[in-house]
Design a protein around this nucleic acid. Sequence first.
DNA 1: ACGTTTGCGCTTTAGC
DNA 2: GCTAAAGCGCAAACGT
Lengths: 84, 84, 84, 84
Amino acid sequence: MTTQLNIINQANGDKLQRFIEEIERLEREKSDISEQIREVFKVAKSDGYDPKIMRMIIRDRKKRPHELEEEEMLLETYKKALNM
Amino acid sequence: MTTQLNIINQANGDKLQRFIEEIERLEREKSDISEQIREVFKVAKSDGYDPKIMRMIIRDRKKRPHELEEEEMLLETYKKALNM
Amino acid sequence: MTTQLNIINQANGDKLQRFIEEIERLEREKSDISEQIREVFKVAKSDGYDPKIMRMIIRDRKKRPHELEEEEMLLETYKKALNM
Amino acid sequence: MTTQLNIINQANGDKLQRFIEEIERLEREKSDISEQIREVFKVAKSDGYDPKIMRMIIRDRKKRPHELEEEEMLLETYKKALNM
DNA sequence: ACGTTTGCGCTTTAGC
DNA sequence: GCTAAAGCGCAAACGT
């Protein structure tokens, strides 16, 4: 609330509109890409690949190696504690 | 579970890799766009526009598209039945 | 990552097991309730009520208070953005 | 649309209302239980247990042994194909 | 800078 | 089995 505009004239209104529309355009691009991702999964599935496993792979690859390793160790520890 | 691949040979492995990398590329694009959106908000803010209000406006404009009229009519019927 | 447990001894393992089993018990309760909800829909349907419409009404009733509030806020928002 | 009621009289309205309110009551119960589950995770976390790993455990335990095994094999296969 | 709150995206679930 | 919706955790964003 420090440097907020108190008076909105025509120029300011137009400027605001441009910002809004730019953001909306970018959000549409994002949606398009999401759609493309879904499409790749779909094609992969029809080729016999399991999307669920693919997601696991992608999730793991996002993690830093050390992070992943630690996570797996902890999982094993817990499983052991539960006699699994 | 129709045509699930059980054996992954070299060709299948390469194909899988291409799918995975394509998805990862698209996800990177998505992140870039999110970053750009954040940037627009930032610029708008430095120009004196309140990001929070901008978000509200954008949300509202997204909601516009309405449900089918017929469904609403039917809904009205039941609402009356409930004295709403 | 503050006080993370790295070593699981007998006592810690038992405690973990109790947490896990408590959660599993609660999840079973949740499933039971979901089942009961499905049953009510089924009975209602056999009495001639359209489940789809019923769901619409329920969704609508859930949104109501929140939406009214939001509309008022939005009015203020637009006034501000348009310098009224 | 076959056996739907076309005429909504008072009795039908009351009946419908009872169905709706019963469902809403059950949904509230469900929410309460969800809240309790979140609470258990929170306590477990403050005791040093990693909620994320706990969730993995719980997810695995829900699966039938054979199902889980097959999944893990497939995951390994994919990882190998990707030189991970 | 920090703790709280909200929006977003993923996961899971339910209906068709 | 597939598509659509809900629930949920997570991360960014707001206010203190």
